[in-house]
Amino acid sequence: MLTYTIRRLVLSVPTLLFIALVIFMLLELAPGDPMAQVPLTVPSDVKEQMRIALGLDKPSYVRFWKWLLQIFWIEPKVFIDYLTSSTTLFGWLPDTALYERCVGLSNLDTCDYRALSWQTRSPVVDLVLQRLPQTLWVVGTAYVVGILIALPIGIYSAYRQYSWFDQAGTFVSMIGFSVPPFFSGVLVIVIFSVQLGWFPSIYDTTHTVNDWDSFVVQLKQMILPVMVLALQITAQISRFMRASMLDNLNQDYVRTARAKGLGETTVVMVHVLRNSMIPVVTVIALGVPLIFGGAIITEQVFKVNGIGQMLIGAIQANDLPTVQTLTFVFAFLIVMFNLIADVLYGVLDPRIRYE
């Protein structure tokens, strides 16, 4: 297993390099000009100086190489420095000081330059880290809630196939699959915020939790966006769980376990569930990065100031460094969680060997 994991980690490097090339070329060929947002009153020579300052006068291969250095070398060093000096979790470690910051004009030729947003001229990764907690509050909670609801529904629906519970679960799942978040989000706002007045319709990203009352306020403003995202997650995972359980309930080893006198709970919740979780693990693991992409619409509906709204704003402003970085982060998450899913296969099923 260790050899397989190391081999997959090594193979993920050329995969990510190819993904980075595709992302860069697609955005390079996309229509639009970063100078289109500049007012028409700005003289053309000033616009040209702005293009030079943004590095747009350089050839494509030079800008691509610079971006590769930023995402594979400079930003990881900055992130390690952040973990070892600014967080309570790893702050006890010695400060690595891997990143050399530019101070003054003496070392501009030797120090590293980070990927800067064309909108704010701030490092893109710093902007992502500022908005990431807001996204994790909503997306992370929705994903955990969706999984906790979906697994029992899928298990019981398969065990009581064609019962009223199974029919109701199938109906709710079809709704979750069919209704897009921009419709379900507006619908829950109209019902629970406008009509009933139970929950706020806009997510206040400036709210801080420091006591019980502020935690209740945070919980109330999270309910509607979490409800919308959890509905989609529950619909998908519960159907996969049901199908996998039905496939294993009719296997020979289940009849053998029952013939040995094992209790029905032990047969279903130990033997059948463990084998049924193998394909479901793939859906859960690969759904983590995908739900970040799906949360883009939800963040727009509920005005959550997360990375989804940041990506939409960057696309509208033609902020290519921000779009490139966020897209690559999503791709990186997909590659890494795919590896995690493959490793979990061997943990769930001892028959699977990669050596």
Rank of each mutant, 00 (worst) to 15 (best):
L219C: 09
M222L: 13
M222V: 07
I223C: 02
L224W: 03
L224K: 06
V226L: 13
M227Q: 10
A230N: 07
Q232A: 09
I233V: 12
A235F: 03
Q236K: 15
I237Y: 01
S238A: 06
M241T: 12
M241Y: 04
A243N: 13
S244N: 03
M245R: 08
L246W: 11
D247G: 08
N248D: 04
L249V: 09
N250H: 08
Y253H: 15
V254C: 07
V254Q: 02
A257T: 10
R258P: 02
K260F: 01
G261N: 08
G263D: 14
T266R: 15
V268F: 05
M269F: 13
M269D: 11
H271I: 05
L273I: 11
M277E: 06
T282D: 08
L286T: 10
G287H: 03
V288K: 04
I291F: 04
G294T: 04
I296S: 05
I296M: 07
T298N: 08
K303H: 13
G308N: 10
I312V: 14
G313C: 04
Q316N: 14
A317G: 06
D319M: 05
L320P: 00
V323R: 00
Q324G: 06
L326W: 00
L326S: 07
F328E: 11
V329T: 10
V329Q: 12
V329P: 00
F330G: 11
F330K: 15
F330I: 15
L333M: 15
I334A: 12
I334Q: 15
V335I: 12
M336E: 15
L339K: 11
A341W: 05
D342P: 04
D342R: 04
Y345N: 10
G346F: 02
V347A: 12
V347E: 07
R351K: 13
